[in-house]
Design a protein around this nucleic acid. Structure first.
Lengths: 228, 228
DNA sequence: GGTGTAATCGTCAAGATGACGATTACACTG
DNA sequence: CAGTGTAATCGTCATCTTGACGATTACACC
């Protein structure tokens, strides 16, 4: 076997939630060069004895304190342009995490600060990210938008029990559109396995009491719910 | 910055075509240990000054002689389990390539042999692959099957000009189903940008002459064409 | 000219969707 | 405590898409 080059391998996380009616990404402020002071995706090196998903889960736990069972975590894409990190060749495997809106604080261990940023600002001009992280966020957001179409994954943004209207607001925030409440209700409750009814109901959103639902068993929607 | 581990990074290619009515993958026979003599995906190390897609395009050209413009090439997924390569930690970025059936010979430069294998045999028991390549092939096949649903990518398996029936046979081979010729014809010709009619026609398949079409501009199908 | 083989065009019922009216059940207010 | 506001939920209807399948067309070959 001939000699071969080796590279640093990291995982970076696009952690998304819906806060205040808007899709938001978790970012950390870099404490060291390069890009010191810039906002960046949470992430870190892959340790010698862990696999990629394990590294992603570990980083997610370090940043949010969340156990992996409670969140949706999937591989997004790998980025390895030669000059994407000025320190040398770094290949990063990006993961996408979808979370309910956390009341819990976001305590970073090795970052100067961590906070949620609305993706509108991240993909616009108001926040400039380190490295190629803006593109990674964009890919993650597009993946999330697409997955809401053909999977019941919108519920991953909701707490354990939620109303149909709350789920609809997730879709509206992620897609940046408005949806007809009646048609959305018909689609969600009419698709087997999308959600399952629970005993409870709530009036926390005002108006007539709404039934509470839990996530269903389905992993794929047939037919899909397409963006307008 | 603390010290960090580095790993070998490779690209592996899942190259798919449709031959003799069946979906087939390009495999090479390993000339060296480990897994010497086993069939494996074509691939190789990422060179220090090339990006991941460039490495994939280079490997594809080395194996098939094809220029990247003529083929569909997309990143599939990254595999990095600690023990996936007995020689040490190797992270591989898999790419998926879709090709028309090549009359051209498949001349490998550094492999003992190269040939097309029906994926049915590869995912079954009749061919045993090296490393975790069977799983990678499985992921690539599933990606291809899914992409035929919501993109016009089936045409990537066809030569520059093709008939609707030839395109239908691609779908039937990839999905392993039969499709109603009349409904398929209606769907394909009725979706703007899926295919564009050319002046020619052919009787190479017997029967009434069929119009020839070229790939259209569309990249997404709305609505999708779902597997039965 | 008749026959075989596909390609292409039509028809129809069933299912899904978008638009939107009507009703229901609670909290809140005066 | 009846009236009012706010959502949730249920219905209706025209339109679009799909699956199933009949009918017609155009060529090659006998």
């Amino acid at each position: 076997m001939p000699s071969f080059p080796t590279y640093a391998v990291t995982v970076d996380l696009v952690v998304l939630t819906v806060r205040d009616g808007a899709l938001a990404a978790l970012l950390v402020r870099r404490a060291a060069a390069p890009y010191r002071g810039r906002w960046a995706l949470p992430g870190g090196f892959v340790l010698p004895d862990e696999d990629l998903a394990g590294a992603a889960a570990r980083e997610l736990a370090e940043e949010t304190g969340l156990v992996p069972d409670a969140v949706h975590l999937e591989q997004l894409r790998t980025y390895g342009a030669p000059k994407r990190d000025p320190r040398g060749r770094v290949v990063t495997v990006a993961y996408l995490a979808l979370l309910p809106d956390l009341p819990a604080p976001v305590a970073g261990t090795d970052a100067a600060a961590a906070r949620w940023w609305p993706v509108e600002g991240v993909l616009g001009e108001s926040v400039r990210l380190a490295f190629d992280h803006e593109r990674i966020v964009g890919d993650g957001v597009e993946r999330a938008r697409a997955k809401l179409e053909y999977t019941p994954l919108g519920a991953a943004f909701c707490p354990a029990e939620f109303t149909i209207a709350e789920l609809r607001q997730i879709y509206e925030a992620v897609w940046g559109t408005t949806l007809d409440p009646r048609n959305f209700h018909r689609k969600v409750t009419g698709t087997p396995g999308f959600v399952v009814e629970t005993a409870g109901s709530t009036t926390r959103n005002g108006g007539r009491p709404a039934r509470l639902y839990r996530r269903g068993e389905a992993t794929l929607l047939h037919p899909a719910m397409l963006r307008p």
